[in-house]
Amino acid sequence: MATSMTPRKGSGGRRTRRHSRHPAAMSEINVTPMVDVMLVLLIIFMVAAPLLTVGVPVELPETAASALPTEQEEPLTITVTADGALVLQTTETPEDELIPRLRAVMAERTDDKIYLRADGAIPYERVVQVMGALNGAGFRKIGLVTETGGPTLGGPGN
């Protein structure tokens, strides 16, 4: 709060405080608390962001295919684990309940893509069975999730 200190006439040059009715407006903003809050939020989001991805551990096979463009919605993923179990997003789902649950989830979404993640150690037959069941249920946009940077068919020169 600012006060005015001016010499009064007849006071021998002494300065006295004169109280005004309206205190002068403070022209500085203290941004330190705002910066502190922003730094804390930044740290929280940096720690939480990797946890927002689907957390089913699988060893994806590597291919030379490029990544698909990113979407606005969180991708809908079905994961086939190393022991052959099916996981819808992060919830393990029995085979007979997969299609009804998937239909319920897809009714609330605008994007109809499904990403199929499968552990590289499981037989190809299991992946094809899941893809066939999805296709038979009417889901046509199925993408296979792999790791990039794998071998190409033509070898290293192609």
Rank of each mutant, 00 (worst) to 15 (best):
S11E: 14
A65M: 03
N135A: 11
T152N: 11
E108R: 11
E97Q: 09
D96C: 03
M34N: 06
E28Q: 09
G13Y: 05
T32W: 12
V58C: 09
E92Y: 01
K9M: 11
M106W: 04
V47R: 02
L60K: 08
H19R: 10
M46V: 04
R18E: 04
A118I: 11
L88Y: 04
I114P: 08
D111V: 05
Y115P: 04
L144I: 14
M1Q: 14
I122N: 03
D36T: 06
R8L: 15
G132L: 13
E92V: 04
E74F: 07
S66G: 07
E74I: 09
L76F: 14
K113A: 15
T6L: 11
M46P: 03
G136D: 12
P75Q: 06
S20P: 01
T53E: 15
D111K: 07
P69I: 06
T148F: 03
E95Y: 01
R8H: 13
R109V: 08
G150F: 07
E95S: 07
L41C: 13
R15K: 13
E97F: 02
Q72P: 05
V130Q: 04
Q89K: 02
A107W: 07
H19M: 04
V35Y: 09
L51I: 07
T3E: 15
V80P: 06
I114M: 09
T93H: 02
V47H: 00
R14K: 07
T63V: 05
L41F: 12
E71W: 05
G150M: 10
A85C: 03
V47A: 08
V128Q: 12
V87Y: 07
M46T: 06
R126E: 10
V145W: 07
G136M: 02
N30G: 06
P123E: 05
Q72G: 15
P23S: 00
M26E: 07
A48M: 10
R140S: 08
S4H: 10
H22K: 14
A65E: 06
D36N: 09
V31D: 08
L42W: 03
F139N: 02
V35E: 10
T16N: 12
T79E: 03
Q72I: 14
V128E: 13
T63S: 15
R21G: 13
L102C: 01
M1I: 14
T152A: 11
P33I: 00
L41R: 02
E74V: 12
D112T: 10
T79C: 05
L86S: 03
F45E: 10
I114H: 08
M46L: 12
Q72T: 15
T81Y: 04
